[in-house]
């Protein structure tokens, strides 16, 4: 009897361990997670942050900086100030001496 209970304990441990291992690549568990995300958006965010990423170490504008950036909508508005109209861009190009051409790739 004691032998049987010990066997049961081993089986239960195996079940928990295999469950954790299957989660790594199991499409079914993935689908279940996706369903959970749809119902509970906060958990969806947590899943999104678990996507494989690499540390860039780029000075100034790296992966972390882009991911954690606080939006600067005023800067988007400022972009408008520098916009070039088609007319002004064309005038500048003509002044530079650029000549439009019809270009395409030759068909093989």
């Amino acid at each position: 009897m004691l032998f049987m209970r010990f066997r049961h304990l081993l089986f239960a441990i195996f079940a928990l361990a295999s469950g954790a291992a299957m989660a790594q690549n199991n499409p079914l568990t993935g689908l279940l997670r996706s369903l959970t995300n749809t119902v509970a958006p906060d958990q969806g965010k947590a899943a999104a942050t678990n996507q494989p990423t690499s540390v860039m170490g780029v000075r100034g504008l790296d992966e972390v900086a882009l991911k954690d950036a606080t939006p600067a909508p005023a800067a988007v508005v400022e972009l408008e100030k520098y916009a070039a109209s088609a007319e002004s861009a064309t005038a500048a190009a003509k002044q530079t001496g650029l000549q439009e051409r019809t270009v395409s790739y030759q068909k093989p």
């Binding site: 079940a15 469950g19 954790a20 989660a23 790594q24 199991n26 079914l28 993935g30 678990n50 494989p52």
Partner: peptide, 23 residues
């Protein structure tokens, strides 16, 4: 059942590609 139900909870690293193959 443990494998199917508990696995998503116990997994700390989740591969989104797994969903990709399904959908």
């Amino acid at each position: 059942l443990t494998s199917v139900v508990c696995a998503p909870v116990s997994a700390q690293t989740f591969n989104l590609n797994a969903i990709g193959s399904v959908v």
